[in-house]
C-alpha cells in the first residue's frame, strides 16, 4: 500500500485544465510504482466518458480508473493546484485538491479508502491541506489524522 508519502505529493502544480491535473496525479502514482503508465490514460478516459462525478465534495476530486487498467499496488497521490481548476461539476467546482487513486479490489483498497475518508471527513482537513505551503506540512496534516 502506498498512501500519500512524499513521493506521492505535489504541493504546487500549475494545471491549465482538469485533464492536466488528472495526468499529474496519475504520473505521481506511476513514479511511485503504484500503477503502470497506461493507467494514467485510463484515468483521463474515464473522466471523458463518465464525467466529473468523482469531484466528491467542494474542492476535492478523486480521479481513478479500474484495477485491470494497470494497478500494481493500492495507492493514493495528491496534487495541490496552484490555482483552482473547473472540472465541470455542478456543485463542487472549482477543484484545488486532486487525489489520484490506484484502485485495486482487495482488502488494501478498502483500507486505503478508509484512511482517505477518515482524513477528509474532518471538516477542516481540506482547507488545512489547501493552505499548506510544503510537502512536509501536508504530511503533518495527514499524519495527525491517521
Amino acid at each position: 500500500m502506498k498512501f500519500l508519502t512524499e513521493k506521492l505529493i505535489d504541493a504546487e502544480f500549475d494545471a491549465s485544465d482538469a485533464e492536466e491535473a488528472i495526468h499529474r496525479a496519475g504520473t505521481l502514482l506511476a513514479n511511485a510504482d503504484g500503477v503502470e503508465h497506461q493507467y494514467i490514460e485510463a484515468m483521463i478516459r474515464s473522466y471523458r466518458e463518465n464525467g466529473s462525478y468523482f469531484v466528491l465534495s467542494p474542492k476535492i476530486a478523486l480521479p481513478h480508473a479500474r484495477p485491470e487498467d494497470g494497478v500494481k499496488d493500492a495507492s493514493v497521490s495528491l496534487v495541490k493546484l496552484k490555482s483552482p481548476v473547473e472540472f465541470g461539476h455542478k456543485t463542487n467546482d472549482p477543484v484545488s485538491l486532486v487525489f489520484g487513486l490506484g484502485a485495486t479490489s482487495g482488502d488494501e483498497h478498502l483500507e486505503i479508502l478508509q484512511k482517505l475518508t477518515r482524513l477528509l471527513n474532518e471538516k477542516e482537513a481540506a482547507d488545512e491541506l489547501i493552505n499548506a505551503k510544503s510537502i512536509d506540512e501536508i504530511i503533518n496534516i495527514i499524519e495527525k489524522r491517521n
Partner: peptide, 15 residues
C-alpha cells in the same frame, strides 16, 4: 453508485 463502482461509491458506502 458511481461511474466505475470502485472508489467513489465505496467511500459513499462507508459513510
Amino acid at each position: 453508485v458511481c461511474g466505475l463502482g470502485q472508489g467513489t461509491s465505496l467511500i459513499l458506502k462507508m459513510n
